[in-house]
Computed example of a mutant assay.
Amino acid sequence: MKKMIYGLFFGDSITYGEYDGVFGGWVDILKRYTLQKFHEGSNEVILFNLGIGGETTEGLLKRMPYEMAARNSEEGNIIFIGYGANDLAKKNGSYLVAPEQFEENIKTAVQYAKQYSNDIYLVSILPFSRNVDGVESATGKLRVNGDVLMYNQILTNIAAEHSLHYIDFYAAIVPDKEILLSADGVHPNEKGYGIMAETVIPIIEKYL
Rank of each mutant, 00 (worst) to 15 (best):
M1I: 11
K2R: 15
Y6E: 11
Y6P: 11
Y6C: 09
G7F: 07
G7D: 07
L8I: 07
F10V: 03
G11F: 00
G11C: 04
S13M: 05
S13P: 06
T15L: 06
T15W: 03
T15P: 09
Y16Q: 08
Y16I: 00
Y16G: 01
G17F: 12
E18H: 07
E18I: 00
E18V: 11
Y19C: 02
Y19E: 12
G25V: 12
D28I: 10
D28S: 14
I29V: 14
R32D: 15
Y33C: 11
Y33P: 02
L35S: 14
L35P: 09
F38R: 13
H39I: 12
G41K: 08
S42T: 12
N43I: 14
N43L: 13
I46G: 03
G51D: 04
I52R: 02
G53M: 02
G53V: 03
G53N: 09
T56V: 01
T56P: 01
T57N: 03
G59R: 03
L60Y: 02
L60T: 07
L60W: 01
L61R: 10
L61F: 02
K62S: 07
R63E: 06
G76F: 12
N77P: 14
I78Q: 07
I81H: 05
G82D: 07
G82Y: 00
Y83C: 05
Y83H: 03
N86R: 02
K91Y: 08
K91M: 12
N92H: 13
N92L: 07
A98S: 13
K107L: 05
K107H: 00
A109R: 03
Q111W: 03
Q111C: 09
Y112A: 10
Y112E: 15
S117I: 11
S117W: 02
D119N: 14
Y121N: 06
S124F: 07
S124M: 08
S124Q: 08
L126A: 03
P127E: 08
R130Y: 09
N131F: 06
G146F: 02
D147L: 05
D147W: 04
L149Y: 06
M150E: 15
M150D: 11
N152R: 01
N152I: 04
I154S: 01
L155D: 01
T156C: 06
T156E: 11
N157D: 15
A159M: 06
H162C: 08
H165E: 12
H165A: 11
D168A: 09
D168R: 08
A171W: 00
V174R: 13
P175L: 08
P175Q: 10
K177R: 15
I179N: 05
L180I: 02
L181E: 00
D184E: 10
V186T: 13
P188K: 05
G192I: 07
Y193P: 00
G194V: 03
M196R: 09
M196H: 06
A197S: 13
E198C: 12
E198H: 12
V200S: 03
V200G: 02
V200D: 06
I201T: 14
E205K: 15
K206T: 14
Y207D: 13
L208T: 15
